[in-house]
Simulated assay, not measured.
Amino acid sequence: MKSFIAVALFAGIIALAKADDYGCHKNVTFGCSNSILNPVVCHSRYGGIDNIESGLQSYINLNLHKSYQYLLMSTFYNSYQKNRPGFQKLYKEMSDRSFDDAIELIKQVTRRGGQVDFRAISQHPNSIAQSNLKLEEDELHSLGIALDVEKTLTEGAYHLHLESTHGRPHDPQTAHFVEEKFLERQVDSVRKVSGYVNDLSKIMNQRDPSLGIYLFDQYLEKQ
């Protein structure tokens, strides 16, 4: 009886194997080539990566651009004229975070069998090469810029998640990646920066806000 069950199970496995289309298995000897006659079939692309890859590229562009923008803001407040170490620290940390996020996104693309087009980054309307940023802002207006940037990054993550979950076919792995790496953290970031904006706006409405701005900068430096 046991031998009969074993034979039946083995036969079932063979039948399932024949029913599946193992493209790489059938073409493994030439499946990694790339020609008209022999297109690549042994790769790490699956699910909805074809639908989401352009969205990932756009979010990489956005993070690199915002990292550069924050870096300029950081160096502006690190000058001897401005001398705001707290603002310098805040914007440097935000610059590093956006750059690290771009690296994680690049890893995600290559992990799923894609390739990042760095020429598209340099040609993007918001790219570093195309940037024309204004730095003649006071501390309050710079925080307003930072809040706008964080909301833009949040909207970008939401759009990427929407493409991952509603595309056909959808890509649950990318959706999970975006949720884990970006969505929750962006909520906290928008909340934090909006709090800074409202606190500093109250200080700026005073008759002489210079001491209040100094103390606020000291507070940022200790965070």
Results as ranks from 00 to 15, higher is better:
96 D>I: 03
136 E>D: 12
122 S>D: 09
90 L>S: 07
62 L>F: 08
127 S>N: 05
6 A>F: 11
91 Y>C: 06
5 I>R: 12
130 Q>D: 05
155 E>P: 00
24 C>A: 12
71 L>C: 03
107 K>P: 00
122 S>C: 03
134 K>S: 15
111 R>D: 05
49 I>H: 13
195 G>T: 11
110 T>Y: 05
8 A>D: 08
181 K>F: 09
67 S>H: 01
41 V>F: 09
59 Y>G: 06
70 Y>N: 01
6 A>Y: 07
106 I>G: 07
19 A>S: 04
18 K>Q: 10
96 D>Q: 12
160 L>G: 00
89 K>W: 00
143 L>V: 02
37 L>Y: 12
131 S>E: 02
177 F>P: 00
153 L>K: 08
95 S>T: 03
172 P>N: 15
201 S>R: 05
75 T>Q: 07
211 L>H: 02
22 Y>N: 10
208 D>G: 03
65 H>R: 14
157 A>Q: 14
81 Q>N: 05
125 P>T: 01
211 L>M: 10
155 E>H: 13
217 D>S: 04
44 S>V: 01
103 I>D: 05
171 D>E: 05
123 Q>D: 13
94 M>H: 14
72 L>E: 05
85 P>D: 02
193 V>L: 15
170 H>P: 03
210 S>N: 15
67 S>R: 03
120 A>W: 02
125 P>M: 11
34 N>R: 06
96 D>M: 14
165 T>Y: 04
83 N>D: 09
37 L>M: 08
212 G>D: 04
140 L>A: 07
34 N>S: 11
53 E>H: 04
64 L>K: 03
195 G>L: 12
38 N>E: 04
136 E>L: 09
207 R>P: 09
113 G>E: 04
66 K>E: 14
172 P>E: 15
64 L>D: 01
94 M>I: 08
17 A>E: 10
33 S>A: 13
124 H>A: 15
210 S>C: 08
136 E>V: 03
105 L>C: 11
151 K>G: 05
132 N>Q: 11
132 N>Y: 04
40 V>C: 11
57 Q>G: 02
101 D>P: 01
17 A>C: 13
65 H>P: 01
109 V>I: 08
114 G>M: 08
37 L>V: 04
38 N>M: 07
10 F>C: 11
45 R>P: 02
206 Q>D: 06
108 Q>L: 12
220 L>Q: 00
60 I>P: 05
74 S>M: 09
220 L>F: 02
151 K>P: 02
118 F>D: 08
186 Q>N: 13
148 D>P: 01
184 E>F: 13
67 S>G: 13
105 L>P: 00
89 K>C: 07
160 L>R: 00
163 E>G: 11
119 R>W: 01
63 N>K: 11
158 Y>C: 13
42 C>K: 01
206 Q>F: 04
48 G>W: 05
18 K>N: 13
177 F>T: 04
180 E>T: 15
193 V>F: 03
106 I>Q: 04
26 K>I: 12
27 N>H: 09
126 N>T: 06
191 R>T: 12
151 K>E: 09
60 I>G: 05
198 N>V: 07
103 I>Q: 06
46 Y>A: 14
